[in-house]
Design a protein around this nucleic acid. Structure first.
Lengths: 296, 296
DNA sequence: AAAATAGTGTCTTTTAGACAGTATTTA
DNA sequence: TAAATACTGTCTAAAAGACACTATTTT
């Protein structure tokens, strides 16, 4: 082992260093102020293209012959437009918006000046998930409602100056949380489907996280983590629509959600609408979150 | 950083070290000679219990509040017996058997003498998948037909003497490959559903890999990696039955596989049976392996 | 009443699964 | 021909989806 301050010729003998990064998703209105970052570099070829692929973004080295994806399930219509549901915001309740994610501007090389996923090292006394949560708090002031390991990225050339293996988590936060982090320094929210060039392989990572999010929303009940404690079924449907990028039949969606048993009516209704008021629901925590699916 | 030969008081400042491990599955006849290893320690409480849970084995720290599983999909019937299909082996073609996995006996502390998953360090110039494949070859003489990242395990107390983060892969090998490794030193094949106490948290890891395998077999077309180049539909069905631990209707299975388009008839038939000969099929490589599902 | 969304009913298509029936081989 | 497995036909139930319809509120 040639640790610590090894020079270039010694680096090949070093063990890869470990880091944690997190892809954080939130739903935000589309007219956000962070448009600066979008236009400053504009969408590169590496960015997420509109229209979702049926296969996961390639994430593994070529020697991993068969599928780096952990559990490909339902795929998306490749012809779906980016965010059709978002273009007709509801007039009363605020529109749930579309997918955004926070990035941090790098203040040193490599990729100094570019934006990167929040992350950092792993402390000696914290597990991987703890490290992800702590880094999240420290860099973006966010406490996610949902946090799950995404993938370990470890190709040799991920960083130009050293060998880094990144264990990446993905997280969902609700809008009130997300607003808190807007104030944080160096943190910018970018629209997930129109990213600029990010540092390292972080565009690839975001693509993969997006694929996983869209995939999991279709068979699992995680979309409510984008919302607050209570919500209407229309709001929950809008979340699904924003994530999946297509409109969903309200009647069928209602039946699916209610029959899944993952949601409980509070008995209250929303007021102040200019039409029939909707019932307010709450997510049912007692459901085992790992086995929950819309389709059994 | 306090690298290299740090003493105990300095260890808390070291970055976690990285390792690769792999859970390798093969289908083998049940009357194998490795029964020694099974009885020597017998099934501990940590071993895989018969009957499959509907939720994945817990794999994350408690702070990862919501689901460490990467993509929970179809769950299994919790009441299914362990391996009913195996108990009635076909009389002509050799029975596909049941799930076994190779382990390596540790020759140093910690857990000296116990069996552990094959693994090792990551070299400076190889990606994670490459490292998994190389370690596999070196320790067990196996070249898997399927190799995929499973999960990064990184709780603080995984190893008693140091902090280790293991990036675990899972692999499938066909029986002819598996036979080659029987000769390898220190390698023992154990039945996946009756494991002894393994070193580190490797029982937990195997449980999780088993859950993923069973889960993925239900929506993806990976089971053929347990077989050779060509196979009959009955053989393929037996593989599914052995993995899932339940019998499958032959007619319905045939229709599902054929309509999935993942398999092509070679035109040949098996000979030497005492009944109507079956057609021989070959897996269709051109199918995108990540999007393939039995159920759409 | 008009507008607008909430919520229900119902029909069609697709899929999984149960299970009976036919086909083709060897002994 | 009997036995044994390969393969096909067909019915049922469950689920997804399209879409028309009713309900309840404000303006």
């Amino acid at each position: 082992m040639y640790p610590g301050s090894a020079n270039v010729s010694e680096r090949r003998f070093e063990a890869p260093s470990l880091a944690i990064s997190t892809v954080i998703f939130a739903l935000r209105p589309n007219d956000s102020s962070a448009a600066e970052a979008v236009t400053s570099a504009s969408a590169s070829a590496e960015s997420t293209a509109p229209g979702h692929s049926t296969a996961p973004p390639s994430v593994a080295s070529t020697t991993e012959a068969h599928s780096a994806a952990e559990s490909a399930t339902r795929a998306h219509s490749p012809t779906a437009p980016a965010h059709p549901a978002v273009e007709t915001p509801s007039t009363e309740l605020p529109s749930v918006g579309s997918l955004w994610l926070p990035v941090v501007r790098r203040i040193r090389e490599p990729y100094k000046g570019l934006q990167a996923l929040p992350g950092g090292p792993i402390a000696w006394n914290e597990s991987l998930g703890d490290a992800a949560g702590r880094n999240l708090r420290e860099t973006t002031n966010l406490s996610p409602k949902y946090l799950e390991q995404l993938y370990a990225f470890g190709t040799v050339d991920r960083s130009p100056d050293r060998r880094v293996v990144s264990i990446v988590y993905w997280a969902l936060v609700d809008p009130s949380e997300a607003d808190q982090s807007v104030a944080a320094e160096n943190v910018t929210w970018l629209p997930a489907d129109r990213l600029p060039r990010l540092a390292f392989d972080h565009n690839t990572i975001v693509d993969y996280a997006l694929w996983r999010l869209r995939n999991k929303v279709e068979y699992s009940q995680i979309a409510h983590h984008f919302l607050g404690e209570t919500f209407t079924l229309a709001q929950l449907r809008e979340v699904h629509e924003a994530v999946l990028g297509r409109s969903i039949d309200p009647g069928n969606f209602r039946r699916q959600i209610l029959s899944s048993g993952t949601v409980t009516a509070t008995g209250e209704k929303v007021g102040g609408t200019r039409h029939r008021p909707a019932h307010i629901y709450r997510f049912n925590d007692s459901i085992d979150k790992d086995s929950e699916r819309l389709a059994p």
